[in-house]
Amino acid sequence: YRPSAINAFTGKDADFQLIAFALEHGLTVATHERPKPNARKRVLIPDVCVAMGVPTVDTFDMMRATGASLHLASAPFDDGALVAPTLPGLE
């Protein structure tokens, strides 16, 4: 990878920490990214997971498998603020 790609991946975003946590605890990482093993301009989560032996799953496949669904707001609260999307059980 280019140095700029590595710096971006290990910078302020927590992607590398998420992968390290999953590795340490035997977890699977859910991501919408698709692997691109020949990429050099950007380090992608699935490619790092493969290199580290961490399983991945597509975000929508995870939602189907767990029965999770998004509940989007259709009306504002009394104070005018919109309801944030939620995942049941993770509110």
Rank of each mutant, 00 (worst) to 15 (best):
D79A: 03
A14E: 06
D79E: 07
V83I: 12
A39F: 05
T56P: 02
V29S: 12
T59D: 07
L44Y: 03
R2K: 12
A20K: 08
D78F: 15
G53S: 10
M62L: 15
D58M: 14
V29P: 05
P37D: 00
H25T: 14
T31C: 05
E91A: 15
R42Q: 12
G53E: 06
G67M: 10
P88M: 11
K12G: 04
L72P: 02
L72F: 13
T10W: 04
P37I: 03
D15S: 13
E91V: 15
A73T: 11
I19R: 01
A22N: 02
T59Y: 11
P3Q: 05
D47T: 10
P55D: 02
I19S: 01
A30F: 05
V54S: 02
P85V: 13
A39L: 05
R40N: 07
K36G: 06
R34E: 12
A8T: 07
A39V: 06
Q17C: 14
A22R: 06
F21D: 09
L27P: 03
M62K: 07
D15Y: 11
Q17R: 15
D61W: 12
M62D: 06
M63P: 02
V54G: 01
A30W: 03
H25G: 07
P46A: 06
A30N: 06
M52S: 08
M52K: 09
K41L: 15
